[in-house]
């Protein structure tokens, strides 16, 4: 089956270089052929009512981390904020 690797890479926010492209396309086709062996079952999905998740209350917990601890792994920090390229013109 034909898949548009460049389009999928774009959606994935990945760049595939020209030298890698043929190999990648070939491998992806093989993998998609493998997953295509899955038969189509004409049924509907339903939520499993016997296995309902219990979510914890959405209450902020303070004192667990300091701001510095949370920022220690950031690539670029300035004046207590994360630095990113300009997004609005």
């Amino acid at each position: 089956m034909d898949i548009d690797i460049r389009h999928i890479a774009k959606l994935s926010r990945l760049k595939i270089s020209d030298d890698e492209f043929a190999k990648f396309e070939n491998e992806m086709k093989g993998i998609v052929d493998m997953v295509n062996t899955l038969p189509q079952l004409g049924e509907d999905l339903a939520i499993d009512e016997n296995n309902v998740m219990q979510l914890r209350k959405d209450i902020a917990e303070t004192g667990k981390f300091t701001r510095d601890e949370l920022f220690q792994n950031a690539p670029q920090v300035k004046a207590g904020c994360l630095v990113v390229p300009k997004t609005v013109e």
């Binding site: 994935s12 926010r13 990945l14 760049k15 595939i16 990648f24 491998e27 993998i31 998609v32």
Partner: peptide, 19 residues
């Protein structure tokens, strides 16, 4: 993402994005 992830991770992300 292209520099930080290895080939297998990229293949899986792309397969996942595709499906």
């Amino acid at each position: 993402r292209s520099e930080g992830f290895g080939s297998e991770v990229k293949r899986r992300i792309m397969l996942g994005t595709f499906v």
